[in-house]
Amino acid sequence: MEDIDITMFPRVKRIPHERFDELIVKFYDLEQSIEFDRCKCIGCGICSRACPNQVIYMPSTEGKIRINREDLIPSIPNPRDCSFCGTCSYLCPTSAIWLKKDGKYIKRKEFKIVNKNIVPILDYELIELENPNVEAKAFLSGNVEVDWKKCISCMSCVNVCPTSCFTKQLPKNEEGSKNKKSKPSFNGKNCMKCGSCVNACSQGAIELIIDGINQSGKFKEIFWNSLITRLKSI
C-alpha cells in the first residue's frame, strides 16, 4: 500500500492490485475509493471528458508515436478534488471504473445521479470486444473522419481500436514483403464512437464528431446538457 499523502486529511492512499489501482480518500467518518481497471480500459477518455470537475486526466501522448492501450489509461492526480459522483463510472463503456464507499462497491443503480434522475437511462447496444476481451456498452452516435494526408502509418489506431475498425492493410505483394508506407484502413461498421483512436493518433489526423447519445427517461437539464457538451468536445 502506498500512502500518497497522509500529511493532510482526508488521507489519500493508493493500493495497487493486479488489475487495477485503488485510490482511497479517507476521512474519519467516511472512506471513498475509486478503481480504474487497467485490463478493461479502452482508452476512450469518456470519463475524463464527462467528469464535471475535470478531475480525471488522460495521460499526455506528446512525443510518443507507437501508442498502445496501456498508454491511454487515465489517472486522478489530486484525489481530494474528486466528488465521487459516479458520472465517470456510469458512462464508462466497459465498466472499467468502480466506486466504493466504506469498502463496499456502489452499484450503478445506487448512484445518486441515477436514482435522483440527474442522468437519464442510457440506451446502449452490447458489443463483444476482442481487445480487451470484455463487453462494452455503445451508446454514442456519430462519425469518424480521417485526414489520411496526415497519417504516418504509426498504427497506433490499429493498436487501440476496441472493435478493430482500423486494420493493417494486407501487403500487396504476395511474398509478404512489407510495404512500410502502407496506411491502415478504416471500416466504420462496428464503430462504437468511443474516441480511443482520436486519443491515440499521434498526428491528430482522426476526428470524431458525436452527434447524439442514446438515452431515455428523465434527467436534469442543467447537468446533462453541459455533460453532453463536454462529451462532444473531443
Binding site: 486529511f9 482526508p10 476521512f27 474519519y28 467518518d29 467516511l30 481530494r80 466528488s83 445521479i113
Partner: peptide
C-alpha cells in the same frame, strides 16, 4: 441534506466530510 457530493470539511482540517 440532499446534496450528493461528499468532500473534506476545512473547519475539521479535512478529517470529517461535508457536502458540497
Amino acid at each position: 441534506q440532499d446534496c450528493i457530493v461528499e468532500c473534506g470539511n476545512e473547519f475539521d482540517l479535512g478529517m470529517k466530510s461535508r457536502k458540497a
